[in-house]
């Protein structure tokens, strides 16, 4: 559906006036496709994102940390569901989106293909990965597509606890024994660069950005948000007494300037050859297949209840 000139003008006028587009409004095909792809990728990231930390639930160092971690992983499941719900308002089908994830036709964030090898990684994920996610997500609460913006508002509200609990856990380690301090330092070393890559390719290599900005889906460039993250995070690392693994990091009086990012690594992980890509997908597909009986049982139970309600009527 290309739409008449009047429809296109009206659509762009709404976007330019910072109004929201709602599900039943006319919208260009490209806008719909871009949103479905982006929202689905975002939803997939949330549910795959349960895995690196989920493995630590049974090994959390205290009951308090365990309860916090369970709540955080539950939130990630919930965030995935908010986003699948938003994608469905665009005509996408939830089962098809999951199938696209399971068959590799749709992607999720590269960050979740790195392993959480120690408890300190759980802390670093909360602090850095959720910290970066928040910077990416806050502008999306003003995205031009209403259901996506509303889902992001809920997610951002819930996400700030994720970052804080991570920083708190990091701070405890950084002020602990020498061994704990080293764990924290190593985790920062492992997660720093992958976290910077979460903002996506540099502006020069981000061909779709300009269109997304015109459509009011994207508000800040990848490099802009990345710089914001670095400026916010470097002082936090200093507070913790930990070293950011970037020998070229300098302060230019306004910003913390970081050294070159290894985009080859990003491409390798994106292509499917990161440390955990296969494991994450296999775990996800297995969970879906092994959960089939639950879905079937729920449907059978619903049929049974409907039948007995009918018989009683």
């Amino acid at each position: 559906m290309t739409g008449t000139g009047a429809q296109q003008d009206r659509f762009q006028a709404l976007v330019d006036a910072d109004e929201r587009i709602e599900p039943r409004d006319w919208m260009p095909d490209g806008y719909r496709r871009t949103l479905v792809r982006q929202i689905a990728q975002h939803a997939h990231s949330e549910i795959i994102g349960m895995q690196p930390e989920g493995g630590w639930i049974t090994r959390a160092p205290s009951l308090r940390r365990k309860a916090i971690l369970v709540a955080k992983v539950q939130d990630e499941a919930g965030h995935g569901l908010y986003l699948y719900s938003a994608a469905e308002t665009l005509g996408a089908d939830r089962a098809e989106l999951l199938d696209a994830l399971h068959t590799g036709r749709q992607k999720y964030s590269t960050i979740f293909n790195y392993p959480a090898t120690s408890w300190a990684d759980v802390a670093a994920i909360g602090w850095l990965v959720d910290g970066a996610a928040i910077l990416n997500q806050v502008p999306l609460t003003r995205c031009s597509y209403g259901p996506y913006a509303r889902a992001m508002t809920r997610i951002c509200k819930e996400e700030s606890f994720h970052q804080r609990q991570g920083f708190e856990a990091m701070n405890v380690l950084a002020r602990g024994t020498d061994a704990q301090r080293q764990m924290a330092q190593d985790a920062l070393g492992r997660w720093w660069w992958p976290a910077l890559m979460m903002f996506g390719p540099s502006d020069a290599n981000s061909p779709n950005s300009a269109q997304s900005m015109r459509w009011g889906i994207k508000r800040f460039s990848n490099d802009e948000l990345r710089q914001r993250f670095v400026d916010a995070t470097v002082p936090q690392a200093e507070f913790l007494g930990l070293q950011v693994p970037d020998p070229e990091m300098t302060w230019d009086g306004e910003h913390h300037r970081y050294g070159p990012i290894d985009w080859t690594e990003f491409e390798v992980v994106m292509r499917g050859d990161g440390p955990c890509n296969r494991q994450r997908m296999a775990t996800r597909v297995r969970a879906h297949e092994e959960g089939a009986w639950v879905r079937e049982a729920a449907a059978a139970y619903a049929r049974k209840r409907a039948a007995s309600a009918e018989a009683a009527a």
């Binding site: 569901l81 469905e88 259901p147 509303r150 729920a298 449907a299 139970y301 619903a302 209840r305």
Partner: peptide, 9 residues
């Protein structure tokens, strides 16, 4: 928002 479920319950 919305969700998928087999019945109202």
């Amino acid at each position: 928002g919305s969700l998928r479920a087999p019945d109202a319950h």
